[in-house]
Nucleic acid binder design. Structure first.
Lengths: 216, 216
DNA sequence: GACGCTCAACTGTAGTACAGTTCAACTGTA
DNA sequence: TACAGTTGAACTGTACTACAGTTGAGCGTC
């Protein structure tokens, strides 16, 4: 611990801040799926230049919440069954591959800790925190792959997943969420690779089915 | 087949074209690792607005060839042993996970075709085509995962990998490249998962070692 | 209803301007 | 000689203006 820990200057650009803000708004439903992000309108409303909004939206594109169409600008992604499946398939592939590896003790600790925090959040009934801890749990599983690049990739899926998890939270009780994750954790702790893989698959399948029903 | 197959209009923006062009230049070594991409200079030289260059560079950032530093702009990534290892580890995780799956016939065909084209390219000694077919081979392996999102992710690694493969091509003969890929292909065709995984690991390890030596 | 026309809204791109940051060169100082 | 300022040029981040080209909705015509 240095005497300077935590001391930081505002090391970020306006565009980055705008991207973060817009991201939140989209998650919160301020823009519906398929809506266009009109640059001049946003620029005027927020009192920044259109340039800056364009940069912000380019950054947003990285998170996958928005995509560019030539001459139509940025459009909020619309969830389709195919897209949901594509997203969850990627997740399933990563997590099952991760579950096949033999975890180091500190990795298991991290997953356990994430699970405990998820349980806490569920007890409090704080939806946004549940979603947050849910994502952290899965991130910790992916971390078993020992690949920073894949960790980053999973992080880049996070915003999209957060959107869907928020949707799901409306049809699942916090207890159900905890239960689903507990079986995965147990299998991992026991070192039962096959069962871990099976549970992860089941978890993904259930989620996809529910999402399709809720959104389609 | 429609009567309109192949008919297309120029559906791309200037920024996208610039990004492609810049990408090539970087690969070709026009900018060394760590070099800054100075916006005004590039804009002036290419006769476009700085705005447009900025957008192009944002797009470039997606490919990983360049990263933004606040108030310093875009910087060409410098290969370090850690980065090389991180990149190849991600590749290894994806490909070994893919090799564990049972391929459909058309997937095996695709891999075989990629290998044949690699062999052809090697016979001709055309380095840039060898690198291209090499990447296509690995992309075909990743495709075994049946995940479009992971396919896209691998594609996003492609530009970086192309850079390293080009470096490697200076120390490996085309025949060696072909031989390394043949053993992987054979294992996959035989359905010998364990051997495929082992060969992929070996291939990656050898590459990383050679790269470290060549660059470090 | 299919087609063509018109028009307003908006994107893509250009160009200019300027404040703030970075960095290297220079200067002073102990 | 080592090191703390100071300065200034180069460059980024952001704003603003302008305009050609594209899109899509509205409207009339057949």
């Amino acid at each position: 611990m240095s005497a300077l820990d935590g001391l930081e200057v505002r090391r970020t650009t306006t565009a980055q801040q705008l991207a973060d803000g817009l991201s939140e708004r989209i998650m919160a439903g301020a823009f519906g799926p398929g809506d266009r992000l009109r640059e001049s309108a946003i620029a005027a409303e927020l009192g920044v230049a259109r340039n800056t909004i364009r940069e912000a939206v380019r950054i947003l594109e990285l998170t996958g919440l928005v995509r560019y169409e030539v001459n139509r600008g940025a459009v909020v992604i619309a969830p389709t069954p195919e897209k949901i499946e594509a997203l969850y398939t990627a997740r399933e592939r990563l997590e099952t591959a991760a579950a096949l590896r033999t975890p180091r003790p500190e990795q298991l600790d991290a997953i356990t800790r994430a699970f405990d925090e998820l349980t806490e959040a569920a007890a409090e009934g704080d939806t946004s925190r549940i979603v947050d801890r849910d994502l952290a749990f899965h991130q910790a599983i992916v971390a078993l792959l020992d690949s920073t690049r894949l960790d980053e990739f999973f992080t880049s899926l996070t915003e999209e997943l957060r959107f869907y998890l928020t949707v799901l939270s409306k049809s699942e009780t916090p207890e159900e969420v905890v239960a689903q994750h507990r079986v995965i954790l147990d299998a991992l702790l026991l070192g039962d690779h096959d069962r871990a893989v099976a549970e992860i698959r089941a978890h993904v399948d259930v989620s996809v089915e529910q999402l399709k029903q809720l959104l389609g």
